[in-house]
């Protein structure tokens, strides 16, 4: 095992004509001289929120807007009202911003993460949104378990408008400023989909069949 490691590194260095790897700083300096453009990225002439909503819709996601976090339970109720939930429960991600809210009885909210595999709908808190692509950013951790992003049929993400940034790069800037990369960061753009049957787009392949973002602010 470690022999293969040594051999691969030896071959890499032989191919590159050296015996010692340059430092990360030397490498970074080389990269800087190579990248002379102004970081080509999509641009848009609307505000960030409009771009976010437009891209989210283009990815078959939906959204609603409330002015304060306290209105989220009502917005969830409105969203679920006309949907066929087949008696499956709606569960809360263990995030204090959600668990501290006043949830009406008739929504039958389940707060027990251990039951997550039976939930039809999961409600989670988005860490950030990306306007460029209409994506929600979900880093893993005790308040944001990864599997909740994928197991339920319906995924509801509560996102503060102030947390919407223009580009993905800003997500890494903030995450790395706060500490290490979490185990997983899911950047989610619309519901699950596949085109593997005759290149026909079909939603709800393995992950959620719908993604609904409740924008707060």
């Amino acid at each position: 095992m470690s022999e293969q490691r040594a051999e691969i590194l030896r071959r890499v260095q032989q191919a590159l004509g050296r015996q010692k790897a340059p430092s990360v700083d030397i490498a970074a300096a080389d990269l800087e001289t190579r990248l002379t453009d102004n970081l080509p990225r999509p641009e848009w002439n609307t505000d960030s929120l409009s771009r976010f909503c437009e891209r989210l819709e283009a990815a078959a996601g939906s959204h609603a807007r409330v002015s304060s976090i306290n209105e989220v339970p009502r917005a969830v109720g409105d969203y679920l009202e006309n949907l066929e939930t087949d008696g499956h429960k709606t569960g809360l991600s263990p995030h204090p911003r959600l668990t501290e809210l006043d949830w009406p009885e008739d929504l039958g909210i389940d707060r027990e993460f251990a039951n997550a595999r039976t939930w039809g709908t999961a409600i989670a808190v988005g860490y950030m949104g990306i306007a460029e692509t209409g994506s929600v950013v979900m880093p893993s951790g005790p308040t944001r378990p990864t599997t909740l992003n994928f197991l339920p049929d319906r995924h509801i993400v509560v996102l503060a408008i102030e947390d919407i940034v223009d580009y993905m790069e800003s997500v890494w800037d903030r995450l790395l400023a706060e500490g290490e990369m979490p185990r997983t960061v899911n950047v989610i753009t619309g519901p699950s989909r596949t085109a593997d049957v005759e290149q026909t787009l079909q939603l709800g392949a393995h992950g959620p069949r719908s993604l609904h973002v409740i924008l707060v602010g």
């Binding site: 990815a59 994506s135 893993s140 378990p145 990369m181």
Partner: peptide, 18 residues
């Protein structure tokens, strides 16, 4: 412009993860 799921995995489960 981006796939539905773009995922970044760094290391194994952390002690506090669920």
């Amino acid at each position: 412009q981006i796939t539905a799921y773009t995922t970044f995995i760094t290391g194994a489960r952390r002690p506090e993860d669920l």
